[in-house]
Design a binder for these strands. Structure first.
Lengths: 292, 292, 292
DNA sequence: ATAGGTTTTGTCAAGCTTTTGTACAT
DNA sequence: ATGTACAAAAGCTTGACAAAACCTAT
């Protein structure tokens, strides 16, 4: 029973996690296990995430780790250089499975420290999202875990996306088709485009094509991109997409964008790897797939 | 199950909810739990909704929440936890004083998550560096602490600077004057310029002007910037700076760049706030200060 | 369940590998079978790799080898790391020559993805820096190209250095001598030390010895390292280096650290290959060169 | 294997502050 | 009804302590 009732003070928190208050304070002081915010009077206020962190701490202790190491592992900070070793995607998924927010952030931090954004997007984040989706279909990952992962990753990417509309480069308009809610890979696409100096106007999930058309008329972008995972969502927008394509170079992306539809509309198609696609876009003009 | 008998006065209300009148008044006064209307004589008049609210309050208390939090939750308001409370610059300096690298990173993480890069540069990083410098002069911070801070911050900023040379925007060449080693504010300048879509070629500390000239000829930038904290370092380069200014729009920056020298060389001057300066640069062409 | 738990202390480690602690210590003392890093308090901290090494030792014993031979074989079986192909250095230099930041990052990304950090440092980054220096002396590379390369590489390495102050291992203080500005190989040294579980406090370029002494008193490190390319810079600090050596185990590094000076001061010397040097340091206590 | 010393870590206590239910005077 | 007072409960920090685990050396 989650019962996410607001912040807890140390007494009740200690009762719930089964660790006495003195020890909680010692763990905080010695290893920085928890960093609870304080009430105005100075009382510690714990959150639900802290409950899980303490649970991890206890599991680690049971596994025989010293308290210092157990805390380190519970916080989610392994040695930074481990980012270069082993299966990082798996580490990310493990953290997701444990609802270990700090762990997810740590994996992302370490990866971004070790590799360039493009590499992290291509080799970690996009594959991880794919696997999250696959595991969700298999039922080995719950919807709440999928949401948990999406929200953290989206937040990180959007933080990097600050001010991506500023500047003088060519402008790209990015939108998910109406009904489509998966916007993260579109953010990734925008970020790579940004590293090439493009400006980005991002509409995100579930955007009516009419809205995009309006924006096109107001901003005269060099490119508009509409993504969808589901072919049907694009199919039923054929008409409005056609109108859009009359006004701006258009590209469709995502598994829902079929070669057939793109050829019919006479627009480009960005396939599979959106990072590579962004680099292509930046390199030069796109052409629609050949009709067969 | 009491059916809704009209408004109740505090005595009967207290009896029904099982909380004594004094406590009800305290909860009202301290946490605003209830806001009963008053009779003409000033008596509190409670409604059925208030019964439920008190019931929620009691459930929350039983669940172990503090009275303050229990009331908050019963009312249904959730306060957002402010991400950056207190004096962030002070927190940063404290971490520096303790050689607490994780602490410095944590402050930077939180700030970058909550605010735009520009804001963090202008209101946290540059002021912090200034204060580090000031405290070093006063002797309240050692050089080793200054080095410690500089290296962490430089690392963070250079990490953000990945790929800032890519794209199609105008190119800026950034260098510290020969002998000058303070390169962090120059990195900050470059980062802001990058948010405007410029490309940046960064040479950092202690760069001979002659080789900047070489680079200018190889890359044809739209702007070159040379910074120095010490006027003498620029003064003794007057000749080579003159040659540089013949080949590229040049700006001098930092406390070492005097109006007088800039006027003499006929180059622009970027004063004080390098974040603002970068925004100006991005906005339009610069002109040298008026000679007096 | 592998549960990539962090470092284990001897008790839990012994339980897992099925060899009692006394015997583990004897194998370490007599045959150098394991070289666990130590906590600040001196406790042995074992890693997962050590588990495998002990397993090999036991297999060898079961096969009838003597303990000494079994240990020898267990140690020697570790596979050598693949070397980076020589032309990677050339690719890096080409990107530098073209001021192609994306190219430099791409080479680094690919190398870090394919090889261990240690290998990349030893076989790519340090050789590349050496060649950059050499070409600069020959005049085939300009100082601006050298600065360009240094700043990108420094940024990448400092990003990896994130959180290298965190943990339970012994602490190393790293500084360049006053006047010395080449800090990249010192960062590399710190990173390798970190892979062995050490904590690192990094002061970087041009650090007065007096403030290193202050920091030593504040943080009580297990080792301090001062580097210089120029013998004169160390020579003129003989006195303060002597004072430093009284307070902490000290090592001098870089081409400027002569055997003669180290012997005179009674401190260790880290020669040529800083990656190898870091591995030595991690393996055990250092001793000063013999005076001749 | 044992002896004698050190480090790590869970627990506790002293002295002080904040929070909160209750009581009392106006 | 209001405002103030007060004391018990719960929390905070600092410092200390002892058992368990670990160290070196014999």
């Amino acid at each position: 029973m989650p019962l996410d009732s607001g912040p807890l003070r140390i007494g009740e928190f200690a009762r719930r996690v089964g660790v006495n208050p003195e020890l909680l304070r010692a763990w905080e002081r010695r290893y920085g296990l928890l960093q609870p915010i304080r009430s105005t009077g100075g009382f510690r206020l714990y959150t639900v995430e802290d409950v899980e962190r303490v649970a991890r701490m206890r599991r680690n202790l049971d596994a025989g780790l010293s308290a210092a190491e157990a805390a380190q592992a519970a916080i989610g900070e392994t040695r930074p250089l481990d980012a270069l070793r082993g299966d990082t995607v798996a580490r990310l998924l493990t953290a997701v499975r444990d609802y270990n927010g700090a762990g997810v952030h740590a994996v992302l931090d370490q990866s971004l420290a070790a590799f360039s954004l493009e590499t992290v997007l291509r080799d970690l984040i996009l594959p991880a999202l794919t696997r999250v989706g696959a595991e969700w279909e298999q039922g080995t990952l719950s919807v709440s875990q999928e949401h948990f992962a999406s929200n953290i990753i989206r937040g990180r990417l959007l933080a990097l996306a600050r001010l991506w509309g500023r500047g003088t480069g060519p402008l790209a308009l990015l939108a998910c088709a109406p009904g489509e809610t998966h916007d993260i890979s579109l953010v990734a696409f925008g970020l790579v485009l940004r590293t090439h100096g493009w400006r980005v106007l991002f509409f995100g999930a579930n955007t009516p094509i009419a809205t995009v058309i309006q924006a096109v008329e107001a901003t005269e972008p060099a490119l508009a991109v509409v993504t969808s995972f589901d072919p049907a969502l694009l199919e039923q927008e054929t008409d409005s997409l056609g109108q859009l394509a009359e006004r701006v170079p258009l590209a469709l992306a995502g598994p829902g964008a079929s070669d057939e539809l793109c050829a019919r509309l006479g627009v480009a198609r960005l396939d599979g790897d959106l990072v590579a696609a962004a680099n292509e876009v930046a390199a030069g003009p796109l052409s629609p797939p050949r009709p067969r």
